[in-house]
C-alpha cells in the first residue's frame, strides 16, 4: 500500500504540450507511471508521443477523465492560469491534484483554498516537487511519479517522507535508499504560504497506512504547520517520526527562496519548530546529512 496514489493510478498532465510539462510527462512514462491523458485547451485530438507510447490530448480535464478514467493530475501551467487549472481538476472530481507551478499569487491560492474546502479532491502544492510511490522494478521502476522528482533515487519500502522542499526531499530519500531503507510514498507539499494539503494532513494518512512503518518530516522556517503537525503527533501518532527544520541561520524578514520561507513578526523560527518537534518525541536531525540515520536509529 501507499498513500494518495498507487503504482497503477491513472495520471493526466495539465499543460502537457509546454516544454516543462512535456519533459516531465516523458520522465514519468520512462519511470513506468500510467500517464493516460494530457490536457491543453485548443489541442484536443492531438497525441503526445514518447518512446512508442501514445498519450491522447484533450481540451478539458472533464473530457480527459471521461475518456480515460484518470484519477490524478499533474499541473504544469504558468502561474496566471494555475488557479483555474486546479479548480478545473477539482471540478472533474479527481482524487488528487498536484500543482507543480511555482509563483502563483497568494490571493489566487486564498480563493482556491476557500473554493475547494470540504470537497473530496486532495490538492498537493503548489510550488512542489509532487508525489512518488516507488515501484518494484530496478531503481523503483513501475511506480507512480506525479511531478518532477527523480524517480530512480527511490526504493520501494516502508518509510513515508513529507517535506516542503524539493531537493531536500531528494536528499532524504537518497540517504534512505543508500542505507537500504525504502519508501512507501514521498510527498512534497510545496514551499508556498497557502498550500493544499499540510504536513499534518499527510502525517495522518501515513499514520493510517499499514505499509508505512516510520516517517520523515522535513520542515522549514515560516508559518506554524510544523508545530501543528508535532502537536498532533505527540497525541496520536503510533509510528516513529524523525525530522529536520531548514533555515536556522536565515535572517528574519527575508524570503528564503520559497514564498513561504520567511520569519516574520518573530513567528515561524527554526528554534520554535525544533522545540515543538522535541516536545513531541520527534527525532531531530542535527544536520541535514543525518535525516535517514536519525530515523533508522529509532526503528
Amino acid at each position: 500500500m501507499s498513500i494518495l496514489v498507487k503504482p497503477n493510478t491513472k495520471i493526466l498532465v495539465q499543460g502537457i504540450t509546454g516544454s516543462f510539462g512535456a519533459r516531465h510527462a516523458q520522465l514519468s512514462l520512462d519511470y513506468g507511471s500510467q500517464v493516460v491523458a494530457g490536457v491543453t485547451p485548443g489541442k484536443g485530438g492531438q497525441v503526445f508521443e514518447h518512446a512508442g507510447k501514445r498519450v491522447p490530448i484533450f481540451d478539458t480535464v472533464a473530457e480527459a477523465v471521461r475518456q480515460t478514467g484518470a484519477a490524478a493530475s499533474a499541473i504544469f501551467v504558468p502561474p496566471p492560469f494555475a488557479a483555474d487549472a486546479i479548480l478545473e481538476g477539482v471540478d472533474a472530481d479527481l482524487d488528487v491534484v498536484v500543482c507543480i507551478t511555482e509563483g502563483i499569487p497568494v490571493r489566487d491560492m486564498v480563493r482556491v483554498k476557500r473554493a475547494i474546502a470540504g470537497g473530496r479532491t486532495r490538492l498537493i502544492g503548489p510550488n512542489c516537487p509532487g508525489i512518488v510511490t516507488p515501484g518494484e522494478g530496478k531503481d523503483s521502476h513501475g511506480g507512480c511519479r506525479i511531478g518532477i522528482a527523480p524517480g530512480y533515487i527511490h526504493r520501494k519500502g516502508h518509510v513515508g517522507v513529507v517535506s516542503r522542499s524539493g531537493t531536500l526531499t531528494y536528499e532524504a530519500v537518497w540517504q534512505l535508499t543508500s542505507r537500504g531503507a525504502g519508501q512507501s510514498t514521498c510527498v512534497g507539499i510545496g514551499g508556498d504560504p497557502v498550500p493544499g494539503m499540510s504536513h499534518l494532513d499527510i502525517i495522518k494518512l501515513f499514520n493510517d497506512d499499514p505499509d508505512t512503518h516510520a516517517i520523515i518530516m522535513i520542515g522549514e522556517i515560516g508559518g506554524s504547520a510544523e508545530e501543528e503537525a508535532a502537536e498532533w503527533i505527540k497525541k496520536n501518532c503510533r509510528k516513529p517520526v524523525a525530522g529536520f527544520i531548514a533555515g536556522a541561520t536565515a535572517p528574519p524578514g527575508r524570503r528564503m527562496g520559497h514564498a513561504g520561507a520567511i520569519v516574520s513578526g518573530g513567528k515561524g523560527t527554526a528554534a520554535a519548530k525544533i522545540a515543538a518537534f522535541k516536545a513531541a518525541g520527534i527525532g531531530v536531525a542535527a544536520t541535514p546529512s543525518e535525516m535517514a540515520d536519525t530515523l533508522l536509529k529509532m526503528t
Partner: peptide, 9 residues
C-alpha cells in the same frame, strides 16, 4: 531553496 537553507545551516 530548502537545500540551500539546509546548506547554510
Amino acid at each position: 531553496a530548502g537545500l540551500a537553507m539546509a546548506t547554510m545551516d
